[in-house]
Amino acid sequence: MSQKPIELILARQLSSHLTMPIFIVDPRGDLLFYNEPAEKILGCRFNETGEMPAEEWSTMFTPEDLQGEAISPDALPLMIALSKRRPAHKRFQIKGADGISREIEVTAFPISEQADRFLGGVAIFWEISHD
């Protein structure tokens, strides 16, 4: 596999030092990386899953609205960031690979580079605590 563009390399390097869960995809939505804090919410380790096509990860981690109904992928912040190339934000539930649903808030933004090269998207998310 080929070397990633520097913007994605730096995004991954930054994310591996942050406590905020972060999820990075390419322009197609294929998963490139998620950091250790994200592993807790997604219910599995990145080392175990590795990179994954969008079709695969979107079935492993199921997004649901707050009533438990499935959300169409187009309505997810990360997919909006990719398709509309702007930041997007939403609160919803995600069922992790461990089968547990967690309420999260997500902010996603596109990674666009000079000369309009489009490289992918980043989602930052955090679990809502009702304690």
Partner: peptide, 11 residues
């Protein structure tokens, strides 16, 4: 910022 420099050549 790398964790495993320089081994993961994709990154």
């Amino acid at each position: 910022g790398t964790v495993d420099f320089p081994n993961d050549t994709q990154w």
